[in-house]
């Protein structure tokens, strides 16, 4: 796949909610982390849902890695997702949770088990395979979810406030991990966040949403300099 094809492309996408209509026109190049910002209800999660296939646009089209996605179910898309919480099935152990990313029927070969161990090691949780999610800390659970995204080997990673439930030290560790994986695997990452430091620390690009539209789509440094816009000033000041 040529690197010139955009990883994510939304053309004239419209989606009507009872309260408001969202519209997106958007192109995100392969590789790099794009921070998705905006107030509550501005459409951040809906944007991720459209890309992951959890929402269908009323109009317009979504293409991922150059392929139109209109008829493609969530499982068929080149996308892994991690939410703020509830990423793991609490009654299944860590290795099984990750194994579901390789095969939904859990028919795992020895090579698959090795790659599960490798993914656990990569997120710093070697030997955690037999543990169950309730016995893990919030940060550990998110890293297991990340390990599952690794074994899914999909080029796009969608993160919906993945650090929101973590304290500052863990946030930094998780952020470092994601930055490293982006470089290592050439991932295209979309990161929904409320925190300016995530933008400074991680983002290459910034997508700023307001009332269901894209207000800004600019490189990080340009965004950080746009304090003339009241919305941006309010975000950075918070």
């Amino acid at each position: 796949m040529s690197a010139t094809v955009p990883a994510i492309q939304l053309q004239a996408v419209r989606l009507a909610f009872p309260a408001r209509t969202l519209s997106f026109d958007l192109e995100i190049a392969q590789g790099g982390i794009t921070a998705v910002l905006g107030a509550s209800g501005s459409g951040k999660s809906t944007l991720l849902n459209l890309i992951a296939g959890f929402e269908t646009p009323d109009q317009g089209s979504v293409a991922l890695m150059g392929q139109p996605m209109a008829a493609v179910p969530p499982a068929g898309r080149p996308v892994s997702v991690i939410f703020q919480d509830n990423n793991l099935f609490a009654h299944l152990d860590v290795a099984t949770n990750i194994g579901l990313g390789i095969d939904p029927g859990l028919r795992l070969s020895q090579a698959d088990r090795t790659s599960i161990e490798a993914a656990l090691a990569r997120v710093g949780l070697s030997g955690f395979g037999q543990r169950r999610p309730p016995s893990l800390s919030g940060g550990e659970r998110q890293r297991v979810a990340l390990a599952r995204a690794l074994v899914q080997t999909r080029p796009i990673l969608l993160l919906d406030e993945p650090f929101a439930a973590l304290d500052p030290g863990l946030r930094a560790g998780m952020a470092g991990l994601i930055a490293a994986l982006k470089v290592e695997l050439g991932l295209t990452v979309l990161l929904v966040t409320h925190h300016p430091e995530d933008v400074r620390r991680l983002a290459d690009q910034v997508l700023f949403l307001e009332e269901g539209r894209i207000l800004l789509h600019v490189p990080r440094d340009v965004f950080l300099a746009r304090t003339d816009l009241p919305e941006v000033a309010r975000f950075l000041g918070a």
């Binding site: 992951a52 296939g53 959890f54 179910p73 969530p74 499982a75 068929g76 898309r77 996308v79 892994s80 997702v81 939410f83 919480d85 509830n86 990423n87 099935f89 579901l100 990313g101 939904p104 029927g105 859990l106 899914q152």
Partner: peptide, 16 residues
């Protein structure tokens, strides 16, 4: 709700 989405993302069939 996240579990249904993750299941969809992972492609779990009816039996799984």
């Amino acid at each position: 709700a996240e579990h249904w989405r993750i299941a969809a993302n992972l492609g779990l069939g009816p039996f799984a």
